[in-house]
Design a binder for these strands. Sequence first.
DNA 1: ATTTATATGATTGAAATCGATCATATAAAG
DNA 2: CTTTATATGATCGATTTCAATCATATAAAT
Lengths: 255, 255
Amino acid sequence: MRVSKNVVEARRQLLADLLQNQRYLPLEQICIRLSISAATARRDLSELQRTGRIRRTPGGALSDFSDKFPSFAERLGRDSERKNGLARQVLPHLFSGSTVYIDGGTTPFALARLLPEAEIPGLKVVTNSLPVVELLSGSGVSLHIPGGDLVARQSLLIGERAVRALRDWKIDVSVLGAEGVTESGFWNSAPEVVALQKAAIANSKRSFVLVTAEKIGHRAGAQLATWSSGLELVTDATEKQLQSARIPLAKMEVG
Amino acid sequence: MRVSKNVVEARRQLLADLLQNQRYLPLEQICIRLSISAATARRDLSELQRTGRIRRTPGGALSDFSDKFPSFAERLGRDSERKNGLARQVLPHLFSGSTVYIDGGTTPFALARLLPEAEIPGLKVVTNSLPVVELLSGSGVSLHIPGGDLVARQSLLIGERAVRALRDWKIDVSVLGAEGVTESGFWNSAPEVVALQKAAIANSKRSFVLVTAEKIGHRAGAQLATWSSGLELVTDATEKQLQSARIPLAKMEVG
DNA sequence: ATTTATATGATTGAAATCGATCATATAAAG
DNA sequence: CTTTATATGATCGATTTCAATCATATAAAT
């Protein structure tokens, strides 16, 4: 039966919002959540697609832009294969029953993608990265979230509480990302992220920093660690590149 | 014709990368770009979905870190409109600048769905429910996750660490779910969930328990609270239903 | 109050998609 | 080299999805 115009528009807006949060929804779910028939759902979707707010797929729909972790998804695609290569080098260091901390950022995320297949028995994953949580939830891996604050459109739980919570953990291997590496050490731009990384390093037996070649020689606002702090660099940069940036070659794995 | 194992794996990885970049690809596009038949494309997609790297849709596929929380999504649909009704009753109690704790379960989740529209300035949401986190991340609401352990295919962070972390918070309003309500109080089946709820109640000025009518009179394994503990029942049950279950009518909101 | 317009749900035939099965070529194993 | 295993593409019902049509209840217009 006919409903008022503003009800229709409100429902369509709700559907658009829903899709932005959920990325993708099957038609059936849309019907259930909005308590409407398939016919009306189709009509709403057609209208939303006509105005360019969503994209239709057979049997469902998805929001085209600005998903939950927009910048993350964007960066993720780039050099995906190379990042996987770095992550694969860390895999042998994750032994059965050990605890691994997975940092935010796209390169550590690449490691998380390898874990379901790797099937390491009794592996514990500690992470504040929501993409990692989403990826691994329901995959059989034991997941532990120290907790913290999710600000703005970030994809990482940070803040003072996060740092304190992380101190409670005994970690075997930390897997970190960095935005830059110079002869003086590792760099990242966000101080809150660095604070969290430092807490992870302090509680870890070993810490790997995964860095793709183009970041060699760059520095950023906040220093994560110096070379004397025992971090282990994993990179696909050539020895030549490393030497020209005066990166010490000790304790390092090059792929 | 058969191709070598590494060719297969490389192609699947390429497909996963492709999907990460494109978000969504129709099956036909996958066939064209990888020069494979629909049958092989389907097989590749099935394999990638099995390892949790992508999500299948009818007629295509999309990259989706979140396998989402299937059992949760399933329960969500049931009585969706009635749960929304309960949630709407809580909304007026969330004032500007206040802190609200949103419990796991589908009924408290219904409240989370109302928050982006409600646009309560300065509202802080504290939750260990991953569906709530996913729903609200990037919606402008300030999100805080106490943290904890994610076990099996649960969608809630629980455990001793979670309880301790929650004790750090000062909460204005807690919104909880319950599996049963009797004359002796509120009930839930999982003791770890109850432990978390008790911590939330202890740190909250007010606590609402959202319960749909069919749960009236039922009890479960673990008692959450008695009627003397000051919890406020929000339900769509009739007075008659409540009286026949000997539920005290004080301090309660009926919709 | 009366008339007009339209939002909705149900139905239906057409089209698309899916999973299963099969033959075949070729990689991998012996 | 011979044998085995398997990755592939084609085919074919079964199922699902779609767009169009229609009756109806109700919002909006007069």
